[in-house]
């Protein structure tokens, strides 16, 4: 199953980035992450100069503020990309009628859906990881020169794990939602609107990072991860059950 899905995903990713609406998004996401990293790091360092003596309190504040803010930009915002790719790859394929010859190939339903999932997930994950990597380098690089006492306060181990895990789960969730709504939606722009619904849970996860340092942060992360994992598996199975060539072709 993996070989064909991977081959399909490679070709589709190439196609997706020829779409004018999609190809600017990774640059936008990375630019936003990098831009806000610089702003937050700069704010942190000038605040430290202003506060001066209460260094410990500030470090604590900073260790809470940074994960929450960066979490939004590194966990939640990159979800836009898999949503847009999944909409283009699943609903767009229907809209452009290229789905007909594709459905006539020997791909199984699972291979096809997994291929679509990889198509949406891989760029989303790469962009999220690139944003994270660049932000970590920039923030800590700036701290090295401006406020060495704040260096490596962000990212914590939890923030790192969260940034590595969440894009995978949210991307998979985006694809599952797109497959399920594909039977009801005929246009890509309608799918974008539906896909927007996935940004909200991503934001909530990002805000949950504000609890970092309270002792229940790992529990919350574990709980959220488990819920998302169950949701992803459930959605994939539901999508597989709902995926019906007959209905898809009849509604074209």
């Amino acid at each position: 199953m993996l070989r064909k899905s991977w081959m399909m995903a490679k070709t589709e990713i190439r196609m997706v980035f020829k779409n004018k609406q999609v190809k600017g998004i990774p640059v936008f996401i990375i630019a936003m992450s990098v831009g806000f990293s610089i702003i937050f790091a700069w704010l942190g360092s000038i605040s430290l100069f202003a506060i001066g003596p209460e260094l410990e309190e500030f470090q604590m504040f900073y260790s809470l503020f940074m994960p929450a803010m960066m979490g939004i930009f590194i966990t939640a915002i990159p979800v836009m990309l898999p949503v847009m790719i999944a909409a283009d790859s699943i609903i767009g394929e229907k809209e452009r009628r290229t789905i007909i010859p594709l459905l006539a190939t020997p791909l199984t339903d699972a291979e096809l859906l997994f291929g679509k999932m990889l198509t949406a997930m891989i760029p989303g994950i790469i962009v999220a990881y690139a944003s994270f990597g660049l932000s970590v380098a920039l923030v800590n690089g700036m701290m090295y020169f401006w406020a060495p006492s704040l260096i490596w306060i962000w990212p914590s181990l939890l923030a790192t794990i969260q940034t590595l895990v969440m894009p995978i789960l949210f991307s998979a969730l985006a694809v599952g939602i797109m497959v399920i709504i594909s039977s009801r939606v005929g246009k890509v722009y309608e799918a974008y609107q539906w896909g927007g619904s996935i940004i909200m849970p991503a934001m909530l996860v990002a805000f949950s990072l504000m609890l970092e340092g309270t002792g229940i942060d790992w529990i919350i992360f574990g709980f959220v991860t488990l819920i998302l994992l169950v949701a992803v598996i459930g959605l994939f199975r539901l999508a597989l059950n709902l995926f019906n060539r007959d209905k898809l072709i009849t509604r074209l």
Binding site: M7, R96, R97, T98
Partner: peptide, 29 residues
């Protein structure tokens, strides 16, 4: 089977070249 669907002319991937379209399907088969 090979299928030329109804209105088959409108079912190509415009973001791939003609040869890439054929290559994609050949590999799926």
């Amino acid at each position: 089977i090979g299928l030329l669907p109804e209105d088959g002319a409108d079912t190509h991937y415009d973001r791939l070249t003609a040869a890439e379209n054929l290559e994609y399907f050949g590999r799926l088969y």
